[in-house]
């Protein structure tokens, strides 16, 4: 299954953050590479959706829907740079 990109999680992120997020720029905490969220490599729908840094492949963001409640874990991605 080939990866998609951050455009695929645009709706989920909008719902969570209350605003359009795919143009938001940030840095991978592992390798420092900067990217807009739209440029991240995105895998899967469930058990959760994983966004990885295009440069180093590490997990920068995880979206999980727990009991119907969307949670976005952003600990691998430092927003704003």
């Amino acid at each position: 299954m080939e990866a998609l990109d951050g455009n695929a999680i645009a709706g989920a992120l909008f719902e969570y953050f209350g605003t359009e997020m795919t143009v938001a720029r940030g840095a991978c905490v592992y390798c420092g590479a900067t990217a807009q969220i739209a440029e991240l490599r995105v895998y899967g729908q469930a058990p959760g959706t994983v966004a990885r840094c295009r440069s180093c492949g590490n997990v920068v963001m995880v979206l999980v829907s727990v009991r119907g409640l969307q949670k976005v874990h952003l600990s691998g991605f430092r927003l704003g740079d």
Binding site: M1, Y43, G44, A46, V50
Partner: peptide, 8 residues
């Protein structure tokens, strides 16, 4: 179904 958290 194929579900994955990363590249194969």
């Amino acid at each position: 179904p194929v579900l994955s958290a990363g590249p194969t």
